[in-house]
Design a protein around this nucleic acid. Structure first.
Lengths: 200, 200
DNA sequence: GTCTATATTTTGATAGAC
DNA sequence: GTCTATCAAAATATAGAC
């Protein structure tokens, strides 16, 4: 499966471009990001870059697909997502402001129009809500979460809170403890509201 | 205070421009929005528009300040905000997808760099969290909300959920009932978790 | 696979007439 | 207050040499 022969170089360059582009899109957002600039930082001319990715949008889509895979199983497409995974992801995100910025910016921009990016985020959110809903339903069956609550609502709220916290955190990192607050939310869903968040 | 004389026309045109610009920024986002296009839709040339607002950024800031005022007291600067206001605002937003899109897009874009827009959103979020925190603390004193919970966390979570739900709603309006879900969240905070959302 | 060169479009902003 | 005309600076994308 390892690259060999004439393709090795191309693949390596592709990877390098994607890494640079990720950082660049994260820092500037889609519109303000420039293919020229990404090419320059990758040690290529603009035309050289567009040999690997024929358009700016194609490059962008490759970037976000790649980041998404990293969060799930590195091998295949991501499977299995749960409340625990979501919380773990948010904890991890504290160390990667660039990636968080990328997703906040890109998901927001995607609503502007029907586009490949919009389809990507639509299906991503639907998938994520579905995974969480299934996890929450299982926990309802286990008596961990009140069965009187709508699993759809809870799943959607967990995702929404994670997203909204990211935005607040990006604006004022020192004032917003994302993981702590998301855990607080989850504790509201699991406990009967009487006890507090577990110490630490 | 009513406009009179030579200024009346200018003020009216200013208002018209702001209305058009609001819709335009909401639809396209800041970067993709074009002053030329806004001018055309306002029945002006680009230079004509820039007589009223000397730059694109000035126009943009005027637009978001204006929308923000509309949500609070129409007269003066907004004062008093509470959980009830937040929920009411979200209920109202269901009828104004353009405005929601504007804020989602603009707040996300604002994190890209230090800018006037970023300062605006930073202080806006800080203000909003502060208002909600005060309201929640009052409710804790009244025994409505458990005193063992951190009012800061709850306030931040309410804002985060509202923002995150907006994004999900913009992507799939038919699948995301924003107000219902935000109310569900609030019920988790107020009740002991034992009872369900009020039947309605 | 990578380059230089260029076509094409679009943008924000300004100058100056009316 | 609004216009026409224009500038200067980007951007994406393509053509064709090497």
């Amino acid at each position: 499966m390892a690259e060999r022969g004439p393709y090795a170089k191309g693949v390596a360059k592709r990877e390098e471009i994607l890494t640079v582009a990720l950082e660049h899109f994260a820092r500037r957002g889609y519109d303000r990001a420039s293919v020229r600039e990404i090419a320059r930082e990758s040690g290529l001319s603009q035309a050289g870059l567009l040999h690997h990715f024929s358009s700016k949008q194609e490059l962008f889509l490759e970037v976000i697909r790649r980041r998404d895979d990293r969060d799930g199983d590195p091998v295949n497409h991501r499977h299995l997502h749960s409340v625990d995974h979501l919380i773990a992801a948010v904890e991890h995100n504290v160390d990667e402001p660039g990636l968080v910025r990328l997703f906040v910016t890109m998901s927001a921009e995607s609503v502007d129009e029907p586009s490949v990016a919009r389809s990507f985020f639509e299906s991503r959110y639907e998938w994520l809500r579905g995974e969480l809903r299934a996890d929450i339903r299982a926990r309802q069956d286990a008596g961990e979460v009140s069965a009187s609550l709508d699993a759809d609502d809870l799943a959607s709220l967990m995702v929404a809170a994670a997203d909204g916290l990211q935005l607040q955190w990006l604006l004022q990192p020192e004032k917003v403890d994302m993981p702590r607050r998301l855990k607080t939310l989850w504790s509201l869903m699991t406990q009967s509201g009487s006890s507090t968040q577990s110490p630490e």
